[in-house]
């Protein structure tokens, strides 16, 4: 059986295990809250995680990776970027997928073809992890940018008076 079909068959199990594994990186109190509440407005964080991992799963199994999926990936990393976790923890969630897939497929008969496909799939996961790292850093930078922008906005009049940026309306 082709790898992608195999994975699609196990999609529900894999996603559930992956979701649970991600929650494990939170404090146990927090994890269970995220697990239980399904209303997207009452529990936006868990919604973000779900959408993100579904997107990544589609991406690596060769299904259509929509713009919405890439947005959800971005959202997930935004969330990671403002949590009290180290950078490695922040992107570690992608690698969980590797381990879960290996574990789920351990009872399958491995043909050489399947094995090769699995390797390329793992490379794809690695690539996704790198992409996530980029996004994480981007959003960390964004936080610092927000801080400096906020100071500029708060001192808007001061900056204008001293003829610094932003310039007066007349000159624009």
């Amino acid at each position: 059986m082709a790898l992608n079909n195999l994975l699609k068959e196990k999609e529900a199990v894999i996603l559930k295990r992956w979701f649970d594994a991600i929650l494990e990186t939170y404090a146990p109190e927090t994890a269970n809250q995220l697990r239980q509440v399904h209303d997207p407005f009452a529990n936006p964080a868990s919604q973000s995680i779900r959408q993100c991992i579904e997107g990544i799963f589609r991406k690596i199994t060769g299904q259509i990776f929509t713009e919405k999926d890439s947005l959800s990936l971005e959202n997930m990393l935004k969330l990671r970027a403002i949590q009290d976790i180290t950078p490695s923890q922040a992107v570690s969630f992608v690698f969980f997928l590797k381990m879960i897939i290996r574990d789920e497929l351990k009872n399958e008969a491995y043909s050489a073809a399947l094995y090769n496909k699995l390797l390329s799939l793992e490379s794809e996961i690695d690539e996704t992890a790198l992409l996530c790292f980029d996004l994480y850093v981007k959003h960390r930078q964004k936080i610092y940018e927000l801080k400096s922008e906020e100071i500029k906005r708060a001192a808007f009049m001061l900056l204008r008076k001293s003829n610094q940026q932003p310039c007066s309306m007349e000159e624009r």
Binding site: R17, A21, E24, T25, A27, T86, Q89, S92, M99, I100
Partner: peptide, 20 residues
């Protein structure tokens, strides 16, 4: 704080323990 990364065997068997 050292990174807390779950090991594969932990992942395979998520155990919820109620916190203190």
């Amino acid at each position: 704080m050292p990174p807390k990364l779950p090991k594969p065997e932990e992942l395979a068997n998520v155990n919820y323990k109620p916190p203190k």
